[in-house]
C-alpha cells in the first residue's frame, strides 16, 4: 500500500486523517478496532478545561440540511479527572495522542499545558475557537490569540497546534499571529456560528456552531487562505465526509485532515477516508503522500 506517513509538528502519524476534537472517544476507538479497520493517524481528545463543566442546557444538537448545529459548551470532567481516569486509556491505543485544551485566559492555557507536561502525549491542541461558552470567541482577536500562544509556548516543549475559528474577516492574520508566537501547526476550521428559530413562535431553538457537509466549501476556502499565509503545517477540517473531500483539502495545502461530524453518521468513516486517499494516490501514480505533496509544490 501507498506510504501515507505524515510528520506533522514533530508528530509522526501513519496517515493524514485524525478525528476532530469532541467527535471521537474511547468508545468510538474500540468500535473501530473491533471492526479491524485503519486507525486514524493520531487521536485527538475532547477539549479539556481546568474545572469540570456540566455544559449547556438542552437542546444541544439540531440537524440542518447536510449540517449539524451544536451548542455543547465544553462539557467535560476537568483536567484532574481527565488525567486520572481517561488519559491512560487514550495512550493505551499506541497511537499519538493530541490533547485539546480550552481556557478563558492565557493563564488557564498555561496551567493546562503544564498539567500535561509530564505525560506521554504527542501534542497539545489549543482550542481558542469554541463558539459555545459565552462571550466573544477568543480566536477572533489576533492579539489575544498571540498572547495565548506565546504564554503556552513558554510553558511547554510539546508541539502546539492552534485551532482557529472561521468566524473572522481575515483568518490568515490570526494564523500568522499564531505562527509568529511559536505554534507548530494550525488546525482549521472550527464551526461557523449558526442558529435556528421556531418559525411559528419566534423562539430561538438553538444558537451554536454549524458543522457537517453544509460548511465544507466555506471551510475549504478558509483552509486555503491559511495554507497560503503560513509555513507551518495545517490540518484542514470542516465538513469532510469522504476521501474526495479530504483530497480537496490536501490540494488546498493541508498536510492532514480532521474529520468531525461525519464520525457521528458513520463511525468507520475515517477508515474509509484513509483507504480512499491511499487508493487515489496509487491510481494516480504516487508512491507516497509525501511524493504527492512535493509534486503539488512544484505545480504551484
Amino acid at each position: 500500500m501507498v506510504d501515507l506517513t505524515v510528520g506533522l509538528a514533530g508528530i509522526r502519524m501513519d496517515n493524514p486523517v485524525v478525528p476532530a476534537s469532541g467527535t471521537w472517544g474511547i468508545e468510538s476507538q474500540k468500535i473501530l478496532l473491533e471492526a479491524g479497520r485503519f486507525r486514524p493517524g493520531a487521536l485527538v481528545t475532547k477539549s479539556v478545561t481546568i474545572e469540570p463543566r456540566p455544559g449547556n442546557p438542552p437542546p444541544r444538537l439540531r440537524e440542518t440540511a447536510s449540517g449539524l448545529i451544536n451548542w455543547i459548551g465544553l462539557a467535560g470532567p476537568g483536567i484532574d479527572r481527565f488525567l486520572a481516569d481517561e488519559l491512560s486509556v487514550w495512550l493505551s491505543f499506541g497511537q499519538p495522542v493530541i490533547v485539546s485544551i480550552a481556557g478563558k485566559t492565557p493563564q488557564e492555557y498555561v496551567h493546562l499545558a503544564q498539567c500535561l507536561g509530564d505525560t506521554r502525549i504527542s501534542g497539545i491542541e489549543l482550542n481558542i475557537s469554541c463558539p459555545n461558552v459565552g462571550g466573544t470567541i477568543i480566536g477572533t482577536d489576533p492579539q489575544l490569540t498571540a498572547e495565548i500562544v506565546r504564554a503556552t509556548r513558554l510553558a511547554t516543549g510539546l508541539p502546539l497546534i492552534v485551532k482557529l475559528t472561521p468566524n473572522v474577516t481575515d483568518i490568515a492574520a490570526i494564523a500568522k499571529a499564531a505562527e509568529r508566537e511559536g505554534a507548530n501547526a494550525i488546525v482549521a476550521v472550527n464551526t461557523f456560528t449558526a442558529m435556528r428559530i421556531n418559525p411559528n413562535t419566534g423562539q430561538v431553538i438553538i444558537s451554536g456552531g454549524l458543522s457537517g457537509p453544509a460548511i465544507m466549501p466555506q471551510a475549504l476556502r478558509k483552509v486555503w487562505e491559511v495554507c497560503r499565509a503560513v509555513k507551518i503545517p495545517v490540518i484542514g477540517m470542516g465538513g469532510i465526509a469522504s476521501a474526495s473531500d479530504a483530497l480537496e483539502f490536501l490540494w488546498a495545502g493541508a498536510s492532514a485532515v480532521a474529520v468531525g461530524t461525519a464520525n457521528f453518521g458513520n463511525p468507520l468513516v475515517m477508515a474509509e477516508i484513509i483507504e480512499g486517499i491511499a487508493g487515489w494516490l496509487e491510481q494516480n501514480g504516487f508512491g507516497s503522500l509525501e511524493e504527492f505533496r512535493q509534486k503539488k509544490a512544484e505545480c504551484r
Partner: peptide, 17 residues
C-alpha cells in the same frame, strides 16, 4: 429520547438535566 450525535457518550449532545 433526545437528538443524539454519536450515541456513544462522546459528543455530549443528548443531555438530560
Amino acid at each position: 429520547e433526545e437528538v443524539m450525535g454519536c450515541a456513544l457518550g462522546v459528543c455530549k449532545g443528548c443531555v438530560v438535566k
